[in-house]
Design a protein around this nucleic acid. Structure first.
Lengths: 249, 249
DNA sequence: CGACATGTTGAACCTCATCAACCGACGTGG
DNA sequence: CCACGTCGGTTGATGAGGTTCAACATGTCG
C-alpha cells in the first residue's frame, strides 16, 4: 500500500503532497519546491520505533505526513515525560543543532517526509521564507509547551485528562466510530496508548484509566472502544479542563 | 536616578550597553544598531509590576537589561503557573503577534530596553540576521520549556527544588553574601519569592519552604538569609535534581 | 507600637502512586 | 482446536507525598 503510494508520488512528488500547503514547505517558491522535492524521501515508521535519538546526532529533518510522533525525555532512573506530540503537518527536528535533547518516537504507524540535514540547511540559507515558517512553528510549539506547563503544574488528574481529550478533539481528525454505530456526535481517535497519556500528563496508567472511567460515568465522554471516544458536550468538557476560552490553537 | 542614567546614555546608547553583544542586537550591523538605538528607550519596573498583559495587545518588545521577569499563566479559578523566567539579556515579547497568551511581570526590580513593535518589526524585515537571532532564542526557550515539563510532570517536590536551585546557580550571577561572611563557596541569589518558586514548580509555598529546610538539614545548601544560599557540592545537588549531565544550557 | 508582608512549622486530610489481581484480545504452538 | 503466555487496559486496597488550614516567627513600614 505504501509502495503504491510512493510510486504514485515519484514524479510530481511535492506538488501532490496532501500536507503541502499547510506544512513549512508551503513557504517555498515553485523552483525551491522542486529542489526540495529532489532531496526529500518518504519513510514509514512502525508504532514504537525510534525516529530520532538524543544519543547520536540526527542527520535529517522531516514533515509528519500521517500518524503521531511523540517527543520524550527520560530521567536517569527511567521516569519518562512526553514533552510534545507532533501531528501532520508538523515539522520535526531541531534547526541549527544536530544534537537533540529528546527522543522522537512513532506513537502509532507514522509516515514522514524526510530531508537530509545538510541539503535542507542549505535551502534554509537561501530561502528566508522557509526560515520564517520554521520560526513561526517554533513559536507555536513554545506556546503549546507553556500551555502544557500549566496542565502539568497546576491541574488535577481529572482536569489533565479533560485537557488532553480537548487537545485531541482539536488536533486529531474525526474518525468514524468503528462499532458502526451511527451517531450525531463526532468521534475522536486516541492516537496514543494509556501509558503514553500517562507520560504526557505526568500521571500513572492506573490514574489515567480511572479518570477516564470517571469522565465516562459523568457522561462527559462516551467510549466506543479503548481508542475511540465521543464528546456529547464539548463546552462542558472544556470547562472541566479549566479552559476559559472555548477553543484556542 | 533613571533620568540621569537615560541622559547619560542618550548619545551612544547601544554602543555602551552592557548586554549588547549577548543580546539579540548583537546580530546587528553598525548602522542597524544606530537605527535600533534611535527607537529604543529604557524603562524601569518595580517588583510585582505588570510589564505585558494577556488582556490587551502589547505594542513593544524589550531586552532584559537587569532583574528577572516572570511569565505567568492563570487558570479561571486563580491557580497560577510561571511558564518562564527571563534573565538578562533575554528578549521579551512574542514576534508576529501582538496578542499574548501570558503575563509578563517584574519578579524584582527590572530594567528593560524597549522597542516599539512597529519599528522593530520593520527592522526585522530588513535584517535577516536579527530574525535568525530571535529564532535561536525561541528554540532555546522551547528547549528550556520542555526541560521544565519533565520537572513539573515527573519530579518530586525535593527534586523540583533542587532543579530550581541548580537553574539559579546556572543563570543568576553570583552575589556577595550579604551577611558579610567570607566564604570559599559562591553565593547565589534567589531572584523570586517563595510564592513565585511555588508557582514555577507547581507546588505550594509551604512545600517549598519545607523542602528548602530539608535540603538545608541535609547540608546540600546553606542559607545566608531568605534570598541568598550557598552550594557546598554542586554535583551532589545536580544529582539530587535528577540531572544526568553535570551542566547544560 | 501595631499592622502587614513574607516565611516557617505543625497537624489533619486527600489526591494520586503503588502493588496486586483481573479481564479480554491476540498470537503461538502443541 | 484449545491451552498458554503476553500485552494493553481496568479495578481494588493501601499508603505516601503534598495540600490545606492554622499558628507562629521575623522584618518592615506607617
Amino acid at each position: 500500500m505504501e509502495t503504491l503510494y510512493n510510486a504514485e508520488n515519484e514524479r510530481a512528488r511535492c506538488g501532490a503532497c496532501a500536507i503541502r500547503h499547510r506544512a513549512v514547505c508551503g513557504a517555498l517558491e515553485r523552483e525551491e519546491l522542486a529542489a526540495l522535492s529532489r532531496i526529500s524521501h518518504q519513510r514509514s515508521f512502525a508504532a514504537g520505533q525510534v525516529i530520532m535519538s538524543d544519543q547520536d546526532p540526527v542527520d535529517f529533518f522531516a514533515n509528519v505526513i500521517s500518524g503521531v510522533v511523540k517527543l520524550t525525555k527520560t530521567l536517569p532512573d527511567g521516569r519518562q515525560q512526553i514533552v510534545g506530540l507532533q501531528f501532520a503537518p508538523d515539522f520535526l527536528g531541531r534547526a541549527f543543532s544536530p544534537a537533540h535533547t529528546y527522543f522522537a518516537e512513532a506513537a502509532g504507524d507514522v509516515e514522514l517526509c524526510c530531508f537530509p540535514r545538510n541539503s535542507f540547511e542549505a535551502l534554509l540559507q537561501s530561502s528566508p521564507g522557509l526560515e520564517h515558517r520554521l520560526f513561526e512553528q517554533a513559536l507555536q510549539e513554545l506556546d503549546a509547551a507553556r500551555e502544557w506547563m500549566v496542565v502539568l503544574g497546576r491541574k488535577t488528574a481529572q482536569e489533565k485528562i479533560a485537557s488532553f481529550l480537548c487537545l485531541i478533539a482539536r488536533r486529531s481528525l474525526v474518525a468514524p466510530c468503528p462499532r458502526g454505530a451511527v451517531s450525531a456526535q463526532p468521534t475522536f481517535e486516541l492516537p496514543v496508548s494509556r501509558a503514553d497519556m500517562a507520560d504526557f500528563l505526568g500521571l500513572t496508567i492506573e490514574t489515567v484509566s480511572r479518570q477516564i472511567t470517571r469522565l465516562r460515568t459523568k457522561h462527559l465522554i462516551r467510549l466506543c472502544d479503548h481508542q475511540h471516544f465521543m464528546v456529547p458536550d464539548l463546552a462542558a468538557l472544556n470547562e472541566l479542563a479549566g479552559h476559559d476560552l472555548p477553543a484556542l490553537h
